[in-house]
């Protein structure tokens, strides 16, 4: 295996693959997720046909979870992609050109730290109709900032290096320097951030859906399922426990992969420097 020697990374990828498998299975079994079966309400885990039990309306918890995992993966992938692209572009420009973009970016970063993202999302929900698309755009509106800050920092360092100067003296255009030389230099650190941030996005999405301000039926976010189970907590613990565990595993996978990638990159960097 190419990841030998990086147990965190291995473990993270393993968990993620397992969760994706469950999620994909949910995609296939999607129509059944909402199927009510009042005859089998509150079936405990390990019941025949319902390995993780059912809720008050007899809906299968495992079906729900796989549905929720699929939603979670979609949202976090979309957010990470959007914010990485925007953040890297802005960060490169700010770091390379400096000036007004740079000053503006840094003030925005200051501001984004002062207003907890979850607060902002909740506040925005006062006027926005909750849906998957608004949620993705809303979270992306905040999440591109860390990329921009990180990439700006790396760019500031990289642009002083000899190879950029050489390219400039060689007559390379600005676009060519930015895309051809600086982008590869920042992409590895951005990759680490992508993975680490996916964990945050998962928690934000489920948290908002838990409050009823995120994704709503017919799509079932893990947060929404947990909120549903909350009212019947005293009779059916499994409706809360299993979706939460699935969510925790997803976050764990994202963090493990991020941490592993960080180790991987650091080790490589060291080899280069020696």
């Amino acid at each position: 295996m190419p990841l030998r020697g990086y147990p965190t990374l291995q473990f993270g990828v393993l968990i993620l693959l397992a969760m994706v498998a469950v999620g994909l299975w949910g995609l296939v079994a999607l129509p059944s997720a909402d199927r009510q079966d009042l005859a089998h309400s509150f079936a405990p885990p390990m019941s025949p046909g319902h390995p993780l039990g059912t809720d008050a309306l007899g809906r299968d918890v495992l079906d729900w979870i796989s549905d929720g995992i699929w939603i979670a993966i979609q949202v976090s992938l979309a957010v990470v992609l959007i914010s990485a692209v925007v953040g890297i572009a802005v960060g490169l420009c700010a770091g390379y050109f400096g000036g007004v973009i740079d000053a503006l970016l840094m003030r925005l970063v200051d501001l984004s730290l002062a207003i907890p993202p979850l607060l902002l999302f909740i506040a925005a929900a006062v006027v926005l109709q909750p849906s998957m698309l608004t949620l993705i755009l809303l979270i992306s509106a905040v999440s591109w900032l860390p990329y921009a800050r990180l990439v700006r920092g790396v760019t500031l360092v990289e642009r002083q290096r000899g190879y950029i100067l050489a390219a400039r003296l060689g007559g390379a255009s600005r676009v060519r320097i930015l895309v051809g030389h600086l982008l590869p230099a920042v992409s590895t650190v951005a990759l680490v951030l992508c993975s680490l941030q996916a964990g945050y996005v998962l928690l934000w999405e489920s948290g908002l859906s838990f409050l009823g301000l995120g994704i709503r039926p017919p799509q079932h976010s893990l947060g929404y399922i947990i909120a549903q189970g909350r009212s019947t907590l005293s009779v059916a613990w499994w409706v809360v426990v299993f979706p939460g565990a699935a969510l925790a595993l997803l976050v764990l996978a994202a963090n493990l992969i991020g941490d592993g990638l960080r180790d991987l990159i650091q080790r490589d960097v060291e080899v280069v420097e020696r």
Binding site: F210, G223, G229, G244, V251, D259
Partner: peptide, 14 residues
Amino acid sequence: MLVGALPDFWIALL
């Protein structure tokens, strides 16, 4: 790392 992955509202409900 494991503890950090636990959603706070889930811990609360547990």
